[in-house]
Amino acid sequence: MSGGGGLGVEELPRKEMNVLKGHEGAVLAARFNVDGNYCLSCGKDRTIRLWNPRRGIHIKTYKSHAREVRDVHCTPDNSKLCSCGGDRQIFYWDVSTGRVIRKFRGHDSEVNAVKFNEYASVVVSAGYDRSVRAWDCRSHSTEPIQIVDTFLDSVMSVCLTKSEIIAGSVDGTVRTFDIRIGREISDELGQPVNCISLSNDGNCILASCLDSTLRLLDRSTGELLQEYKGHTCKSYKMDCCLTNSDAHITGGSEDGFIYYWDLVDASVVSSFRAHTSVVTSVSYHPKDSCMITASVDGTIRVWGT
């Protein structure tokens, strides 16, 4: 609809379109799928739920985790899911049947984040055990094919590009592991990194730090481009992301607000109360002006213009 181009403030998704209710207890993550027609959520009730955010319909529930589910990701072809959580396992699901294809065990502690690579052949997970692990979906092995343990503290978030694994950790670093050249590039921010998010052009990393600041880093040089403040983020794992036009930055706050910043001048363009409690997750639609937010209050809200 309004893909690309500089979105005006009025075109930011600020109107509540739908409320997705069903989770019992906090929702820890909500993610659009690749084309943005569906979204996945997971929460403390140990379930993963598949929704149609546009119509507000709950489609399916995936139950198998023994603890809270902290992150979920879907393959580009929508056929598989991966999820992770407090039970130290990564589950590899079949979307249609709802069955677990494989369980990857190996993390010594809770797993915070999980992502598929471009070809959906590898699941990369980041855990509280200070490691990032890569798991092979193609073979039947359930052993990690790569363990990165250079982190000094819990790894909170992981992002993948075609050739890189980027992970943010509580030790204050954002580390980029470039598979192509075999290098690890560590950008130390000095503050615990809560969540990282790639810009859509792939040139910047947005890192949410626990000093209530979002930091935008240039990936090639590692310099700090901008800082975004105003929200509260001190103790929760909360997502942040860029809008699909890369014109604004959005993130939740611990007081239930959602903030929009201008990318360039870092001013708070808009903020409004979206939830009654901590906004744990935000996910921006890949094409449209639409966003979903998840909160500790157990709801997922769909925002549109």
Partner: peptide, 25 residues
Amino acid sequence: MYPKREEFQWRPSPILCKRFDIMDP
């Protein structure tokens, strides 16, 4: 002081490279 950039050597496992469709450096 921050952000401070450092670079290290990191060796991806061959199979990871394979799965990412990248030649193993």
